[in-house]
């Protein structure tokens, strides 16, 4: 660690099942997500839903949370991990991933795929 400087990403972005209204995020055992957030200058998290309570309140669950301290923005994006799966929520869609992989072999295919999802950036 002394020989090689750490990487400082400008932005970390990932998808999780739940955030609360304070910006705390449920990451469960997937602690890599916390490491990404610790390392990055800014962290954006998309979630399936935002809940009302305080995710840091329960002692038996708090170690599976990423505190809002490391989170700059939350956006609700239902099924935001699809066609990949999201633990505890939905499973991966292998046929759709294969369809994407075929489409993404060319820039045109990738653009067409994006257009069909309706997820194209506004200033593409």
């Amino acid at each position: 660690m002394a020989a090689i400087p750490g990487i400082v990403p400008d932005i970390a972005i990932f998808h999780a099942p739940v955030a609360d209204r304070f910006g705390h995020v449920l990451i469960g055992r997937w602690r890599e997500l916390a490491i990404m957030a610790y390392a990055a200058r800014r962290t954006i998290v998309t979630v399936e839903r935002v809940e009302d309570g305080n995710l840091l309140a329960a002692e038996d669950a708090v170690a599976g949370m990423l505190p809002a301290l490391y989170v700059d923005a939350i956006a609700v994006a239902p099924r935001g991990a699809a066609p990949y799966g999201l633990w505890g929520e939905y499973t991966a869609n292998a046929a759709e991933i294969a369809r994407y992989a075929r489409a993404a072999r060319t820039p045109e295919g990738f653009q067409d795929y994006l257009a069909a999802t309706g997820l194209q950036p506004e200033h593409a």
Binding site: R29, W30, R31, E32, I35
Partner: peptide, 13 residues
């Protein structure tokens, strides 16, 4: 895997 995995502390573990 969630069911067949003893790690709870990320990739570093």
């Amino acid at each position: 895997s969630m069911a067949h995995n003893f790690f709870t502390n990320g990739g570093v573990e």
